[in-house]
Design a protein around this nucleic acid. Structure first.
Lengths: 215, 215
DNA sequence: TAGATTGTTAATCGATTAACAATC
DNA sequence: TAGATTGTTAATCGATTAACAATC
């Protein structure tokens, strides 16, 4: 097999967006060259780690000088696939769904939510931040016709698997799941979970720990 | 030092909530005993990993039998500090803030958002899901008086550090940051970030990768 | 009893960090 | 040139997985 390239480490992938943010801020100030040390200092990371992470994107720097800021921004964006926008469907037009639709920052991440779907007929037809809410029954056909590859799930936990199945039946290739539920999808379909409970667990466990120690 | 206990591994901590979800579902069906194999199967994990994770909570099972579901639920909840509710303040009453306030599920995670704050005077005075929006200037004094230890940041990126400083000045001990920005806080203050861009980076990088391979 | 499962120790794997030569 | 920084290899650290004895 020719595809014997090493898998991209997830922790590295998760750090790239913060580099991008920093670099864009830097570009705004007119700086056109940056070193790993500089990035690492701002983000409180190890400079070797930053260098290895940047290496993933295929960029090369110059000893003594560093990296060209604009080149680096382009390299990261291309590596993440953020350089050209992807259209996405969202299932579950509740308050979280509305918040995601309303967040304009996703454009920077190459994501564009073009339609929302809801099982609740009372929500169908409404406009959420200029995005129309459609009945879930229309999803599979529309996804196929519009060549949508990304689906976002913002339904309650007990409807999450159903929403996932719906997206899969429409030929979606990647699911961004915000529902507090474990969902399964066929081999080949990417599932990325945003489990707020996991994040909160880290926070509360640490807090409980420090408060236990202090007493 | 007596506090030479091994640090709790973050990945393990992040898995605990999913166990809890599964166990509660199980308890609902009337089952009162469960094995690691059973949990691992449902969540597509390694059973040894599940056992090690549960070990963290201090629970002991019985060979051949497994763990008592109700005991396990209590053990995880106590370990995470989810058994008694914490009051929290939220800064930034935009659509994401509103979504978090409106999400009743946080009660299960021991979190109760009692007040929202915003710098925008036009938002002040409004009610968001029965929670009053107050001016940010009132935050430090109120946080101190009400013994609030947890602060949630849902402001735009450029106001995030300011919001963090405000919370810190009110004596907050832990910050749950939803703003797409790197924030710094004094030693001892816990900062847990929900960086949607990191999560999306994993999704889009994988998607770009598979699409690259297919062509 | 036999066998499933826990508890625990050892082996493996992968990510982070350290070391250092190459270079502009 | 001298020295800062990249690129790369090696060492360390921590998490996952495997192995196996203890036990109900």
């Amino acid at each position: 097999m020719a595809t014997d390239i090493k898998a991209i480490p997830v922790p590295a992938l998760k750090r790239l967006p913060s580099y991008l943010r920093f670099l864009k801020k830097l570009a705004g100030t007119g700086r056109d060259v940056v070193s790993c040390t500089h990035i690492a200092q701002d983000l409180r990371l190890d400079s070797t780690q930053v260098r290895k992470d940047l290496e993933l994107t295929g960029i090369t720097g110059r000893p003594r000088i560093g990296y060209i800021v604009s080149e680096l921004i382009t390299a990261i964006e291309e590596f993440l696939g953020w350089n050209n926008c992807r259209d996405a469907f969202l299932v579950g037009a509740g308050s979280l769904g509305a918040a995601l639709i309303g967040y304009t920052g996703f454009r920077d991440y190459g994501l564009n939510i073009v339609a929302a779907f809801d099982a609740d007929t009372r929500k169908v037809g409404a406009l959420v931040h200029d995005v129309e809410v459609l009945p879930v029954s229309k999803l599979p056909e529309l996804a196929e016709r519009m060549h949508i590859h990304v689906g976002i799930i913002t339904v309650p936990a007990d409807a999450a698997q159903e929403a996932a199945d719906l997206l899969v039946s429409g030929g979606i290739l990647a699911i961004w799941n915000f529902a507090p539920a474990h969902i399964t999808a066929p081999e080949g379909v990417i599932v990325e979970n945003v489990h707020l409970s996991s994040s909160l667990a880290v926070l509360t466990a640490r807090l409980t720990e420090t408060q236990r120690v202090e007493k």
